[in-house]
Design a protein around this nucleic acid. Structure first.
Lengths: 178, 178
DNA sequence: TTTGCCCTGCGGCAAATTGCCGCAGGCCGA
DNA sequence: TCGGCCTGCGGCAATTTGCCGCAGGGCAAA
């Protein structure tokens, strides 16, 4: 199936984009890549890709805005959303918008390919795992509130009763480890 | 049939269940609650609730198994999945199975209600509900995990991936405050 | 009973994080 | 063009951590 399958890679991290594209090509996929929203929008109609790897943060705008165009061009397109700043809130949003899967960077090609193939999940298999670390919880909460405030750091800090400077610093350096 | 919106609360944490149910009732909702999968399954056909709050971990089994029955009884039912053991993987799964939203405990009634409305055809209105401060959230979370570990500080610290000494100090000086 | 193991409190100290300035620059509506 | 609000960031001082170590208390197997 890989011979003719076309994959659209959309990520403004050029290094990552190049590495991923090459890896996918090496596995026999027909890869097209874009590093900006505009570039992606230009490619979508002509490629009508069956698969897409989409970065959540593309040069300022949200990669999520590209989900609709992708699906419009090809309703069967399977979209894996990738991000270095994973949070449950954005994951939920991505899936609701029609993404097939959501992965946190760093990840690898195999995981991405597996995500494409992910069938309908079985309700039961999910193990409870462990409670969130406080850091993780804080991160999730901040992300939620931040989104509620349309990314406005100052008002988020006010709502959270924390210092703007502190919020800034947390956002700056916390891709968060689980 | 009542003209109030009916909400089904499914959570085996009795304290949480009771608090949440009461809070929802106080806001004028018609609340039914269940604390086990069986109980929930028994309630679903008769209530055909329009809203459901569903804990991910119900006495051993996964709350996700209840999504299908809920939607079968009422395809328009909006389901918010709640869990103290949040992870992106389970969030993705829940949404794909048809949940409306996915929240990590601890959370508050406002957040839950906002989650219900998330996909609503409501054009405007940003819920001005005030989020918990990060400190407060942290405190709630710590208390929850602590209880889960029967008050064992050492193992709680391990689960939370924080230093035992730090946990100790936090517990010592934080009787509670918002 | 002795030996281990794990848990709790707490002191102390270096390292990291906050709280709290202030400043420059950008964007926007009056 | 002014005033208001937002963002980034430098630079401290004040706190809060992370990370020892030590003493003492249950508890269960040896």
């Amino acid at each position: 199936m890989s011979d003719e399958t076309q994959i659209l890679v959309i990520d403004d991290d050029l290094a990552f984009n190049r590495v991923l594209s090459r890896a996918l090509k090496g596995r026999g996929f027909d890869v097209a890549s874009a590093s900006s929203a505009e570039e992606a929008l230009a490619l979508i109609p002509s490629t009508r890709a069956a698969r897409a790897v989409l970065d959540l943060n593309i040069a300022g705008t949200s990669g999520l805005t590209l989900i609709a165009p992708l699906l419009a061009a090809n309703p069967d397109c399977r979209i894996v959303v990738l991000t270095g700043y994973a949070s449950i809130a954005t994951a939920v949003e991505a899936i609701k918008l029609g993404a097939t899967h959501y992965l946190a960077k760093p990840t690898d090609v195999d995981a991405i390919l597996a995500a494409f193939e992910a069938a309908a999940p079985q309700p039961d298999s999910a193990p409870p795992s462990e409670p969130l670390s406080v850091d993780r919880l804080e991160w999730e909460h901040i992300q939620r509130v931040l989104k509620e405030h349309d990314g406005n750091i100052s008002s988020t800090a006010r709502a959270l009763k924390m210092h703007r400077r502190t919020l800034q610093r947390k956002l700056m350096k916390k891709p968060v480890k689980s």
